[in-house]
Each structure stands twice: as structure tokens, then as C-alpha cells.
């Protein structure tokens, strides 16, 4: 009986007591989590309506963002995307707070670190998002401008501009998150510098005649190709 008491009953009682101690915190955790879901959904709904009222979609259409998002495979209106984002942010914040309610030392430490790190993640995500949008915008502007200038490697120029702008934003995002900050910046500088140097060499060695022709034309006057007056 004594052995049974010590081996089975006492540990079970201790477990039961501990469970009773944790239970209110756990219930609070569940409650806050449920509130997180409700608040998240409610704010998503409210902001979705608010963004529609202030015609935020038209504003982003004018900026060209909608079209860039569409190109990136995102077909939802910007108002819906922003509302979703706000909903998720609220949910995540509440979820983190709910974890704190458990009052477990390990979780609390982890939480503290996570909370301190979280703004970096958001800023990095924003940098990446804007980097993606800007890279598409500038890439296409460069593509159209080089086609209109009659440059045969226009596609390559457009892609190079897109990639460069996105790489720059990715570097900034990684730096923001503190992931090998110096290494990433140095790597970017080396890669970017390398590309510029390669182009300089390629143009300098391979295209010296073209460069010469170009300079001669610029200095001595453009060769006339046609006299069409468009206006």
C-alpha cells in the first residue's frame, strides 16, 4: 500500500495539484487566444469596410501597385490585403500575449526575445514587399525605355534592373533582421561591384568600337536616319 501510495498516488496528486495551478493560466491562454481570433477577424472586417469607403484601391491603382501585385500573382484588392494583414498582426500580438499568460519561465524568456525581435521581422517584410513592387516597376520602366531606344538587349536590361533593385531590398531586409548583416552587405557590394566591373570590361574591351562610334556621333553630331516629323 505504501509503495502504491508513493509510486502512483503521490505523483498523480502532485501532477493534479500542478495542473490545478496551471489550469487558470491555461484557461486564460485559451480565452486570450479566442479573443485574438475574434479581434483579428473583427478588425479585418472593419478595416476592409474603411478602406473601401476611403477608396484606397483607387489610390493604389494610380500608384501602379495593383498592377504590380497582379503581375506577382496576387489578385486580391489592396484594401483586402491590408485588412488581412492588420487582422493577422492583431492575432499574432494577442497570441503572443496569451503565451505570456502561461507564466512559464522558458516560454517567458523565449517570448521576450521573440517580442524584441518581432518589429525587425515586420520591417524586413515591409522592405521586401516594397522592394518587390519597386523592382517590378523600375524593371519595366527600364525595359520600355530601352526598347524605345532600340537597344537589342532590352530584355536583359529590364531583368538586370529588376534583380538589382530586389537584391538591394533583400540585402536591406536581411540587415534589418540582423542576419549576417555585415556579410550580406559586403556580399552585395562584391556581387554588384562585380557586375558593374564585368559590364565595364565587356563594354571596354568588346565594345570599344561601339563606344568610339557613340562618342564620335555625340561630338560630331548624330547621324541622320530619317526626317520624319511626327507632330
Amino acid at each position: 500500500m505504501n509503495i502504491f501510495q508513493r509510486v502512483i498516488i503521490e505523483p498523480f496528486e502532485r501532477f493534479f495539484e500542478k495542473t490545478l495551478l496551471i489550469l487558470p493560466n491555461f484557461l486564460t491562454f485559451i480565452l486570450i487566444l479566442m479573443m485574438a481570433i475574434v479581434f483579428g477577424m473583427a478588425l479585418k472586417w472593419i478595416f476592409s469596410k474603411f478602406f473601401k469607403i476611403i477608396s484606397i484601391d483607387t489610390f493604389f491603382e494610380r500608384l501602379g501597385t495593383v498592377e504590380l501585385l497582379r503581375k506577382g500573382g496576387i489578385k486580391d484588392p489592396v484594401s483586402a490585403l491590408l485588412a488581412k494583414l492588420i487582422g493577422w498582426i492583431v492575432f499574432i500580438i494577442f497570441a503572443i500575449l496569451s503565451l505570456g499568460a502561461l507564466e512559464t519561465t522558458a516560454v517567458e524568456k523565449l517570448l521576450e526575445k521573440f517580442l524584441l525581435y518581432l518589429p525587425n521581422v515586420f520591417v524586413a517584410l515591409l522592405i521586401l514587399l516594397f522592394g518587390y513592387l519597386l523592382s517590378n516597376f523600375f524593371g519595366r520602366a527600364a525595359l520600355i525605355a530601352s526598347v524605345n531606344a532600340g537597344i537589342k538587349v532590352s530584355g536583359l536590361i529590364g531583368k538586370a534592373v529588376t534583380l538589382t533593385v530586389f537584391m538591394l531590398s533583400a540585402t536591406m531586409a536581411l540587415e534589418q533582421m540582423g542576419i549576417g548583416s555585415e556579410t550580406v552587405v559586403i556580399a552585395f557590394a562584391i556581387v554588384f561591384g562585380g557586375i558593374v566591373f564585368s559590364f565595364s570590361l565587356a563594354f571596354g574591351l568588346g565594345g570599344k568600337d561601339i563606344a568610339k562610334d557613340y562618342l564620335v556621333k555625340k561630338i560630331k553630331g548624330e547621324e541622320k536616319n530619317d526626317d520624319i516629323s511626327h507632330l
Binding site: 519595366r140 525595359l143 526598347v147 532600340g150 532590352s154 529590364g158 536616319n225 530619317d226 526626317d227
Partner: peptide, 23 residues
Amino acid sequence: PITVNLDRMIERFRLGVKELSDI
């Protein structure tokens, strides 16, 4: 009379079709 460089114009069009079709 007006000078016209047709080959260059057609080449510009061809380049546009090749590169700007996605747009």
C-alpha cells in the same frame, strides 16, 4: 523630299513585339 529609314523602323517594331508582348 523626306528621308525615311524603313529598316530601322521595322526593327524597332520587331524588338517591341519581342520584348513588350508580356505588357
